[in-house]
Design a binder for these strands. Structure first.
Lengths: 336, 336
DNA sequence: TTGAAAGCGCTACCAG
DNA sequence: CTGGTAGCGCTTTCAA
């Protein structure tokens, strides 16, 4: 593989000249246009590419960012997380950054000299916090969930969007005539969220209607939805149910089917977070959709933008907006 | 961050001595036991860690392996692939290797100087083949699916296992009394597979029974299963259906439910590749299960083992065995 | 047994 | 505007 020296000698200039031509704009290199062309020609001729390790050793920049995924198998088991990772990778790669994955089995803490920055995508178990903090002391680290000293916190205010979306969903379900609605919120480690419930209650108050709201909360991360079984057993059944996401909605629909209830004829099912592109299980789900590509792409963009400069306290990413997508799984309640 | 020179001066020896102590076994370094102890003490005291970039520049080994995932979002969308990646990562990490992800948007081909080896996890589009071949000329590359010149091919003979598993499934379904069975094979780009069908036909011949086998083939990779809808519309319905995997089985069950058919009361559904740990949608699926952790771990282990030595032609990985897991989704056919 | 020194390939500075 | 040069931190060889 050709080196800088090869290019230099072959084009009759010094190594410095070649290096400068390669990393500065046409005007900014201290080299005559003519020399520049000659050098560039030789570079192409030889198929020269700067040795990234050598460059990094010198510049202390690796153009590599680390993604902390904790226990990789459980992280990747959830499709939303796998997709998030894919999007972050794509964006980074587009911007010329490499991505390395880091699980939580680090013998020592990861070496900051290998990374320009690092994004922590999971809750970090308390045992690992110190490791990440040590890393954050050396390079920019961004954390999505865990609060880590020295790390940049991601602020997304998804709540506002979710609330807005849920209000839209509520208005729509109420509009169809539903008055007995089961709904599921996310049960976080620190306690259940009540955003969805609140939005439904709020809209009801505003419209002066008195729906019966049957509230549940489930852990999203683990993809085990015990409450779906409970909702399916309600007697009388709700006329509509608001599921956490498509996974939940499908589980619920299956539970309802076992009891002989059909969707949407007997019960309407609304997915609180639906994806256009997920695989086809009938009925097609009505619910709130959003395009997360932009959101995660933006996060990565901001993070990389931040790498050269002095670290910020937080990165504010505009959260993706939910839109109501009407497909098949909701209908007016059956007159009983 | 302390350097080798710091350690050397502080322990009153040369850099060479320190380096040797750090990378050779207690007897093998050319250093007295006493000096060794002193050096090691200073290393710990200073928290010294060799600079990986500097070491790599010298040794030409990076302890990093690349994973080619093609278009990351579509690759990671399929849970089996995401899980495979997680397992490979875990194994690599356990063996002290870092993993970097490579999508197909490489401006140039990936730089072989950054990688000790590379595993290609996807079908490589023809446009990318040349890039990968160039890489394979420099470092060991292993390819799971695409045949790539210069790359090590993975040989897994999953067919034998699948056939064996399917025979077991066939015997069991026949034993329950099913004689009208829909079954789905995988439709590869190069044409449909007939393994599942063949196994069922074979067992029927051996047992001297004459089942009605309704055969379909679908693309597995894309998670869009048009044949599930077709099977659900069969009239009369099959008494049992063998699905590709859990995804397919759930889609099929949903289609059947829309038609008013219940599983397993009206139709038995058998998952050709079920996971114990996937999320809970009733009915729990009966089918063939296997633990892929060992298989993918073994692949990574062999590949890494191969890195130092001269490249092999192929890596033979013992495929995981299928076992029949009986849960709820199959029952004897209803007397009509 | 130990130490000195020559690179790995590149960047960046500093004289000319 | 150009070319020489001093490292980045490590490994490895060779001489003492």
């Amino acid at each position: 593989m050709p080196t800088l020296a090869d290019v230099a000698s072959r084009s009759g200039v010094s190594k410095g000249a070649v290096s400068s031509v390669l990393r500065n704009a046409p005007g900014q290199d201290g080299v005559s246009a003519e020399t520049r062309q000659r050098i560039l020609h030789v570079v192409r001729e030889l198929g020269y590419r700067p040795h990234p390790l050598a460059a990094s050793l010198r510049t202390r920049r690796t153009r590599t960012i680390g993604l902390v995924v904790g226990e990789p198998e459980s992280f990747l088991r959830h499709p939303n997380q796998a997709l998030m990772m894919g999007r972050l990778l794509k964006q980074a790669s587009e911007m010329g950054y490499r991505v390395t994955l880091m699980d939580d089995a680090w013998q020592d803490s990861p070496d900051p000299r290998l990374l320009d920055g690092c994004a922590v995508l999971t809750w970090v178990p308390s045992a690992g916090i110190a490791q990440v903090e040590r890393l954050a002391a050396e390079i920019p680290v961004v954390s999505l969930y865990s609060r880590i000293r020295g790390a940049v916190q991601v602020v997304m205010d998804e709540g506002t969007m979710l609330r807005r979306g849920m209000r839209e969903g509520a208005a729509w379900l109420y509009g169809l005539g539903h008055r007995r609605i089961a709904l599921v919120d996310v049960n976080h480690p620190k306690g259940p969220d009540t955003l969805r419930k609140d939005a439904f209650a709020e809209v009801a108050r505003e419209q002066g209607i008195l729906p019966e709201l049957l509230c549940y909360a489930d852990r999203w991360q683990e993809r085990l939805y015990p409450t779906a079984a409970e909702i399916a057993q309600l007697d009388p059944p709700p006329t509509a149910a608001v599921a956490l996401d498509d996974d939940y909605a499908r589980a619920l629909i299956a539970h309802l089917a076992r009891r002989g209830l059909r969707v949407p004829e007997d019960v309407s099912v609304f997915s609180g977070n639906t994806q256009q592109d997920s695989f086809q299980t009938p009925p097609a789900l009505t619910g709130l959709a959003r395009d997360l590509t932009a959101q995660w792409g933006e996060l990565m963009r901001r993070f990389i933008g931040l790498l050269g400069n002095d670290p910020a306290e937080e990165i504010v990413v505009p959260p993706a907006e939910f839109t109501l997508v009407v497909r098949e799984s909701c209908a007016p309640p059956r007159a009983r």
